[in-house]
Design a protein around this nucleic acid. Structure first.
Length: 822
RNA sequence: GCGGGGGUGCCGGAGCGGUCAAACGGGACAGACUCAAGAUCUGUUGGCUUAGUGCCUACGCAGGUUCAAAUCCUGUCCCUCGCACCA
């Protein structure tokens, strides 16, 4: 009978939807399990294979958890704001809202066709005012709390996006969305969120998370904690703090470098040097258009000097391209003898070097240095600290500076505050009004949501500026003329708390009811790609902590466990992308083979966390299997099962359970397949029921169909997961099976030899076995015949009437039978 | 440069101290079924050797630890991903 996967899959999808089978239940007595996949960005292209992989990983787990008596929350929504949609809409000459809602409809249709068991009643899209209302609400709360502030700062600007970017959105000096576009530094006044307030906690709690190690490492590196000393250098009678992790080298300072982007650079530039500095800054801009990687360390003398507080030495201050403006104080003390960057710079500009650490194995003082010496040693040229071990000296010198009130111990982080304003249309309007008299005035809460106006002109610059009704408002404080903020929020703001909104998505009074969030949160299993390690996953963690401190939630971390599915590349090993023309659309596969086959294939050809290349061949094995068992169940008789299958079944239950729990779906599928391959034409109802339950997470539609076929009622996916019956697991049965395998393999081997050597065609096989083993072979005679394709006769060695012309029964040992062929 | 992950048979990919010439799938070859094809089922698929044995060579390369290594350690090469002048 033909396996009509299209009809079967549609049938069961409709049943699930009509009966609302996957609805979560706030009042359940069961243990809760909140499973979440990173919500997609609905593009016009529809779902890609990576989405499919992501959702299958989650759906398998969820179906398994439901069957294991968990009250499951499994929602899906759409990260619908954002630049790509805005750009795509402009290109298609349509409105972003229209473009997005079309894309979302398409996504939903595709996700339903995949048979993912979401509770659709929880869904929402972030571009709707019912959602972004609460973005604005939280923005105001943060503003109130001092967690959001506005400042002029050197910010990253992408010319293609026409907007500023957060630090996290700059990869390799390029825009995260435009690999070919260098990010420019602009000095602009922007909104920032004080993520750095939580740097320490974000770092500390990483270790407690059940997340992939590499993600944790990436976050730790991103947060980048380092301990050091802040030292006050005197410049033009003013104290300037600088940060160093090497206070032990302070006597070796021969110059200072201030970042070329430093906001106070001007103060240091003397009139004589002004032209040179300006020239340098100009050149710097043109250089930034080239390859940042190959950029040399360059700089220019500012004309000013700093006084080293420890020895009162006067050292020149340079402006340099290699100093990061917004890390620590944006200026460094340079110790060319012991830091490679400073060394390179000093060499280039012929600045003197002064070694202050004496290595153990050579005389540094008498050597012309070829590179900086960065290793341990003893202090020299360092006044009263001479002779100290340098590690020791770090402490002693810092203590000394503290005592003199010219230094302190501080901790620095690489993590920057989160720049959240964007000069684009398709995002949440920032609820702030600028009044000439009152300054920055937050929009009153009762006026929320500030709706994104539909009527705008797209072109150069922020489209919101084109709607005067939106822009020109009265000041809420004084009633005078005022202008509305036209920047919108970074869409990462939207995705920082969406997991909370699912739990109460229809609430119009508050972002969510605390009671519901208390029950469901934190997310027990989060699933998504690794590309968000240092963006979404940091923002969401930050947001949770901020909400906790504002009293909205009572937990510390949003995502207890995280699973990263591997990257699925095209068959040529390259990224799947439209421009390369190597994209495989999951829908095409589903139409051709069915969603169960796609799921089974994606999950069985490698562990799901491994990066893989797509290969259409992987479908073949799964498709064969699915067809095979479909056919098998058309004929199957319900009756009795033997001990062998019960042994296999129970072992499978045990193993599959463990393997699903550890995401080793590929191995679980092997066991399930082996089990189904072993089912005979007649099996007991119990065996069939349990087997179908094991199959269900991997082939939800087919398992339902076969469930019905064997006369069972209800939905398999809501039945209880089978329990292992240890008493039915019998190692002896495995051994017996192994004995048959071994014998068959021996016979085949010898048949081969005989054929080769004597050119003899074997017709019959006589087997001599120990009396206690004979039964097993007799019982499995058919199997032996099948495997060897021979007539077989079995004799016990003590059988006096046995036919044994070559006396092969002499060879018989326990576990080893004699064979005679003729 | 720093930090992750990885290099396994014709291919994809398990395995992560002994039970490993290495799960499972694909492919190839052979056989059964069939008028025939497909599907299905069975077997074979590193080399030599052998009436079912024994040996050799193998898990990127080179060493080492161990009675024993695909599995542990060291070095090295290659691929891949993330961060990148953070003082």
């Amino acid at each position: 009978m033909v396996y009509d996967f299209v009809g079967i899959e549609k049938k069961w999808q409709e049943i699930a939807e009509k009966k609302d089978l996957f609805k979560s239940d706030l009042n359940s007595k069961k243990k809760k399990f909140y499973c979440l996949e990173m919500f997609p960005y609905p593009s016009g292209e529809g779902l890609h294979m990576g989405h499919a992989l992501n959702y299958f990983v989650g759906d398998i787990l969820v179906r398994f958890k439901r069957m294991n008596n968990f009250n499951v929350m499994y929602p899906m929504g759409y990260d619908a704001f954002g630049l790509p949609a805005e750009n795509a809409a402009i290109k298609a000459k349509t409105h972003p809202r229209e473009y997005t809602s079309k894309a979302i409809k398409n996504f939903i249709k595709q996700q339903k066709m995949m048979g993912i068991s979401y509770d659709w009643s929880k869904s929402f899209a972030t571009c709707n005012p019912e959602y972004y209302h609460w973005n604005q609400y939280f923005f105001l709360r943060f503003l109130e709390k001092g967690l959001i502030y506005r400042k002029k700062a050197p910010v990253n600007w992408c010319n293609k996006c026409d907007t500023v970017l957060a630090n996290e959105q700059v990869h390799d000096g390029k825009c995260w969305r435009h690999e070919d576009t260098n990010v420019e530094i602009k000095h602009l006044e922007q909104w920032f969120i004080k993520t750095t307030d939580y740097a320490e906690e974000l770092l500390e709690m990483v270790d407690k998370l059940n997340w992939p190690e590499r993600i944790k490492i990436m976050q730790k590196n991103w947060i980048g904690r380092s301990e050091g000393t802040e030292i006050l250098f005197e410049i033009n009678n003013e104290k300037w703090p600088i940060f160093t992790t090497r206070p032990d080298t302070i006597y070796g300072v021969t110059f200072m470098v201030i970042s070329a982007q430093h906001s106070r650079l001007d103060e240091l530039v003397t009139d004589e040097q002004k032209k040179k500095v300006e020239k340098f800054l100009k050149e710097l801009k043109s250089v930034s258009g080239k390859d940042l990687e190959k950029m040399d360390k360059e700089g220019v003398f500012t004309g000013s000097y700093a006084i080293n507080p420890i020895n009162k030495e006067k050292v020149p201050i340079y402006a340099g391209n290699f100093v990061v403006a917004d890390y620590a104080s944006g200026m460094v003390m340079a110790v060319p003898a012991h830091d490679q960057r400073d060394f390179d710079f000093a060499l280039k500009y012929e600045i003197k070097m002064k070694p202050v650490i004496q290595p153990v194995d050579f005389e540094i003082d008498n050597l012309r240095l070829e590179k900086a010496y960065k290793f341990p040693g003893t202090l020299i040229n360092s006044g009263e600290f001479n002779g100290l071990d340098n590690e020791d000296a770090k402490e002693k010198i810092t203590d000394f500076l503290i005592k003199k009130k010219i230094g302190k111990r501080i901790v620095q982080y690489k993590l920057r505050d989160w720049l959240v304003s964007r000069q684009r249309y398709w995002g949440t309007p920032i609820p702030v009004i600028y009044c000439d008299d009152c300054g920055i005035v937050p929009v009153s809460e009762k006026d929320l949501p500030i709706k994104l106006p539909e009527d705008v002109k797209f072109g150069k610059g922020n489209p919101l500026l084109s709607n005067e009704k939106f822009v020109n408002v009265k000041c809420p404080k004084c009633g005078g003329k005022a202008k509305r903020e036209t920047d919108t929020m970074d869409t990462f703001f939207d995705s920082s708390w969406y997991y909370l909104r699912y739990l109460d998505n229809e609430n119009s009074k508050e972002p969510f009811a605390k009671k519901k969030v208390d029950y469901w949160m934190p997310v027990d299993q989060y699933i998504g790609g690794a590309e968000h390690a240092c963006m979404h996953l940091i923002y969401a963690r930050f947001f949770t902590k901020a909400l906790r401190d504002l009293g909205y939630v009572n937990f510390n971390e949003p995502f207890t466990s995280l699973f990263n599915q591997g990257m699925l590349h095209a068959s040529d090993g390259r990224k799947m992308s439209k421009s390369l023309g190597n994209v495989i659309n999951p829908l095409d596969i589903i139409e051709k083979y069915g969603s169960d086959t796609l799921r089974l294939s994606l999950m069985s050809f490698a562990t799901p966390d491994k990066d893989t290349n797509w290969d259409e061949k992987v479908l073949i094995g799964s498709f064969k299997f699915v067809n095979k068992i479909h056919d098998k169940f058309q004929e199957i008789k319900i009756g009795k099962s033997d001990k062998k299958i019960e042994n296999k079944l129970n072992k499978a239950i045990k193993e599959v359970t463990n393997q699903i729990e550890s995401f080793k779906y590929n191995l679980a599928i092997i066991k399930v397949r082996d089990l189904f391959d072993s089912l005979k034409e007649e099996e007991s109802k119990e065996v069939l029921i349990k087997s179908l339950k094991l199959l269900h997470p991997f082939c939800p539609h087919l398992s339902c169909e076969l469930w019905e076929k064997i006369g069972e009622k209800g939905y398999v996916g809501l039945m209880e997961w089978p329990k292992v019956e240890e008493s039915k697991i019998d190692e002896n049965l495995d051994k017996q099976e192994q004995a048959i395998e071994d014998l068959a393999s021996d016979i085949n081997h010898v048949v081969g030899l005989v054929k080769e050597k004597n050119d003899k065609i074997v017709k019959k096989c006589f087997v001599y076995v120990l009396p206690n083993e004979k039964n097993n072979f007799i019982e499995n005679l058919d199997l032996l015949k099948k495997k060897t394709n021979l007539e077989i006769e079995i004799f016990s060695v003590n059988d006096k009437n046995k036919y044994d012309p070559d006396n092969k029964s002499k060879k018989v040992k326990p576990g080893k039978s004699g064979i005679y062929l003729e």
